[in-house]
Amino acid sequence: MAKKKTEQKKWPEKWHELNPGCMVFAAGNAANYKTGSWKSQRPLWDNAKCIKCGICYIFCPEGCIQETQDGFYEANLDYCKGCGICAHECWPGAIVMREEEE
């Protein structure tokens, strides 16, 4: 399966599309790997309860919560792993976790 050139291929779908040894031939590409595929729950915000303290943003272990233009917060679900830490830490109770199937 060794390819002559060490080029970055498209995102691998099939097993033979993987680079040998899963090597990645370009730097600064962690953002390309959407690591949120395994979550079973997702956070839902109720901005009416949010006091814009930014605790959720600080505690998210994935660093996937960002501030919106109007000062509220939202998660980028491509990287959110559904751990629920944001909901646990949000003391006004502005975040609830919902099952992915719902």
Partner: peptide
């Protein structure tokens, strides 16, 4: 010429890595 080796694979890719190793 920075590259990455020993990367991480999620449940959506790990099985494919196992197949690649088995075939190799």
């Amino acid at each position: 010429n920075p590259i990455s080796m020993g990367c991480f694979a999620m449940p959506d890719t790990y099985t494919e890595t196992v197949k690649a190793k088995e075939v190799a």
